[in-house]
């Protein structure tokens, strides 16, 4: 039932024992201890489990771990002192912190792909995540501070 697969995560080749039915989220959290990606709905609705795969944001709860074979996977643990993490700190863009990893991963992918994204693009991307604590105004300030720095 369980099988060994290899996943490239945060630039490292990792071997993981999984069921075919395991989601990438489960593999990350339970096999690799990468608990930054959070289960918030396990249904693709809230974005708390967002990781970056081949440069695009992906909800790791609606992806099988086996689908990750041969792909570059980045989790929040793979980010180190990036501008968006700093911006989240400076703008108080989180409270409980549970949705934060997912938001940061989505923002980070957005910045990399569209460093000068306009509001409508930012909104299109960031509507994929839910935050229950903040008012989103703080998150808006965080992403804007980073986008304007880049452009």
């Amino acid at each position: 039932m369980n099988r060994q697969i290899h996943l490239n995560i945060n630039g490292e080749e990792k071997s993981v024992y999984i069921r075919n039915a395991d989601t990438l989220l489960t593999a990350l959290r339970e096999q690799l201890g990468l608990t930054g990606a959070k289960p918030g709905c396990e249904n693709g609705d809230c974005g708390a489990c967002t990781v970056i795969i081949e440069g695009m944001p992906q909800k790791s709860c609606i992806m099988l771990a086996v689908e990750g074979i041969g792909k570059q996977i980045t989790t929040i643990e793979g980010l180190n002192n990036t501008p968006i993490q700093q911006a989240f700190l400076e703008k108080w863009a989180f409270q409980c912190g549970y949705c934060t990893s997912g938001f940061i991963m989505n923002c980070h992918a957005l910045m990399e792909k569209h460093p000068d994204a306009e509001d409508v693009v930012v909104e299109n991307w960031l509507q994929s995540n839910i935050c229950r604590c903040t008012s989103y105004q703080e998150i808006k300030e965080a992403i804007h501070s980073v986008l304007s720095k880049n452009s």
């Binding site: 974005g47 992906q58 909800k59 299109n124 994929s128």
Partner: peptide, 12 residues
């Protein structure tokens, strides 16, 4: 397509 689900989900 822009209005189906949300952007991250649409990546999948």
């Amino acid at each position: 397509c822009n209005r189906i689900a949300d952007h991250t989900s649409r990546c999948k």
